[in-house]
């Protein structure tokens, strides 16, 4: 009955499709970003993409494709800066990101009337057009092809870049591909959750998933499931409760993350007790003192083998 009402509306159908697509694509690329500890990369590229939106508006061309072009250029620049400059890299990135934000704000304002700005900052999924949907869907298919099709190579590069280089992988090309795919995902997500929150949909489902998983493949799969779930229920919530869709989606994802951490903490404690009672601990395995991993202790304890 519920689905009869909201799935019957054309604009809601488009909204659900857009949510499904971004819910799949954003965590897929986000898993690699989190793996290589570049969780805020999507946020930065979102800022840069705004300049592209501005360019699209001011030249009366498509804002989405303008955003894609500028974000891809920004991603390539970020990758170059990351590769070359070691010490001053983060300042250079900050320049790029804030420059992109300011440039976008300026151009959108110059294009006459900033009524549109909010749509790109916070998303306007309910006003998705058929044209938008085609653009979003085709870009997202590309993102999924890259993130799933090249997962072995991308995993190797994000896990240990130096090792991948010596192994003979085309590390530079793969890095660039990852950055460009991130940029594309940002622009895809822009219409759904807005540039300010697209990075959240890349990172939060991954963070939630890895509370419960032990393997990379499982983390990626679960993150995509959480992403789709949060995006769909966020759109539903925004329809019934009249809340902003972007904010609803992100807050639901964060709620999932909190639930996952709490349950992981409980499971970890129970495992710890069982282990202590049985005295079956492997010497040295995962003892917080001897573990050089940078994970928070509670998570290390949780991920102990049985």
């Amino acid at each position: 009955m519920l689905s009869n009402t909201i799935f019957g509306l054309a604009f809601m159908q488009r909204a659900f499709l857009a949510a499904l697509v971004i819910g799949l694509a954003a965590p897929a690329i986000g898993t690699y970003l989190v793996q290589r500890r570049l969780a805020l990369m999507g946020d930065g590229l979102g800022h840069v993409a705004l300049t592209g939106v501005g360019l699209g508006l001011i030249t009366n061309t498509s804002p989405v494709w303008g955003a894609v072009l500028v974000a891809v250029a920004g991603a390539a620049a970020v990758e170059l800066i990351r590769e070359r400059a070691k010490a001053s890299g983060d300042v250079a990135l900050a320049m790029l990101f804030y420059g992109g934000l300011a440039g976008g704000s300026m151009l959108i304002s110059l294009s006459g009337g900033n009524a549109n700005l909010n749509a790109y900052l916070f998303g306007s999924i309910l006003s998705t057009t058929d044209g938008d949907l085609w653009a979003i869907a085709s870009l997202a298919v590309g993102v999924l092809l890259v993130t799933l099709g090249l997962r072995r190579a991308l995993f190797a590069v994000c896990q240990d870049e130096e090792f991948a280089r010596v192994a003979g992988l085309p590390v530079r090309a793969l890095n660039l591909l990852l950055a460009v795919t991130t940029a594309v995902t940002v622009t895809v997500g822009m219409r759904v959750v807005g540039v300010l929150m697209v990075s959240a949909l890349m990172v939060v489902p991954v963070a939630a998933a890895q509370q419960l998983t032990r393997a990379f493949a499982a983390t990626m799969g679960l993150a995509m499931a959480i992403g789709v779930g949060a995006a769909m229920s966020g759109v539903t919530m925004s329809y019934y409760a009249d809340t902003p869709p972007g904010a609803s989606i992100v807050l639901i994802a964060i709620a999932v993350f909190l639930l996952a951490s709490v349950s992981a903490g409980l499971v970890g404690r129970r495992r710890g007790r069982t282990r202590a009672a049985a005295g079956t601990g492997t010497p040295g395995a995962g003892a917080p003192v001897s573990n050089p991993s940078s994970r928070p202790p509670h998570r290390t304890a949780r991920s102990l083998p049985e």
């Binding site: 793996q35 500890r37 896990q159 991948a164 992988l169 990379f216 940078s294 991920s303």
Partner: peptide, 18 residues
Amino acid sequence: AAGVPATVGEVVFSGLLT
């Protein structure tokens, strides 16, 4: 380890890439 959990098998598997 990196930022996302990975199993021993997954990490060793990445060594096969040439």
